[in-house]
Amino acid sequence: MSGELLLFPPSASTAATHLDRLMLALTLLMSTVIIIVGALLVVFCIRYRRGARMPRANAPSRSRRIELIWSTGPLLVFLGIYAWAAHDFLELARVPADAMPVFVVAKQWMWKLEHANGRREISELHVPVGRPVRLTMTSQDVIHSFYVPAFRIKQDVVPGRYTTLWFEATQTGEYDLFCAEYCGTQHSLMRGRIVVMSPADFAAWLDRGTQQPSMAQRGFALFRSYGCDGCHGANSSVHAPKLDGVAGRTVALADGRNITADDTYLRDSILLPARDVVAGYAPIMPSYAGQIDEADLMAIIRYLHEGAAAQGDEDEQRH
């Protein structure tokens, strides 16, 4: 047995700093309460044990005032804890606008990651320190969960939709990545590591991966090979929505709603096109459900984000 004992995982992200502060406060508070409760238990049991000479007559069996105090007191404390944790939680839900995007596809029993420039990793993620990173994640099969204890972050990765997670690493080093949602036989082996590097090292690492097309370039090639530009292209005679700059735009739908064209909407539009039809268009787009895998979908959506800039020199493209 190794003598190594891990009690406190490294605190390697901005979220970790916040959480550890909250946990410290909570641990102190809970310890105080349990010590008081335990002490009262022990003290009462000793003082009022059978045979001990203590005044016992006329013990009160209720007191409205005391009961009110020990109901509202804890309530106020609980509301305080709730508010603190909710505040930190909303921070986790708010992705910084300048976050570096990474795309994750989970499958039994490995993680497939891709950086925007096209560099891919298996069960490993290289990131720069001090810069927010946003993970857009989906699963190819069952529900998994992306968990990095050192960053104190976790998010379920669900098939059929995108979930998002962001973090900002504060220390270089290597940290555990675990799958935290039971997913079958090798769930306990679905692990990896996050490699946090200095910005310079990371830039160099990322650069070494520029032989392959960027995600958006790959996405453009797929956009053409799947025939998307046959209807959505500039020269098409088919009445189909134009997609330049569509990502993030507000879209008016046929049923009167206005929604934001986020990644989930874009993905649904490819797989379930009849679901949210754009106002003024007929629902004639065929569904690509079952034809495009998750990584390719992410590439196409990446292309829709980056648009014309991604339509690079075709000679340089390799699959």
Partner: peptide, 12 residues
């Protein structure tokens, strides 16, 4: 029950 704590602790 504390939201941000649960993010780290759930499923552990």
């Amino acid at each position: 029950a504390s939201l941000s704590a649960d993010v780290h602790l759930t499923d552990t």
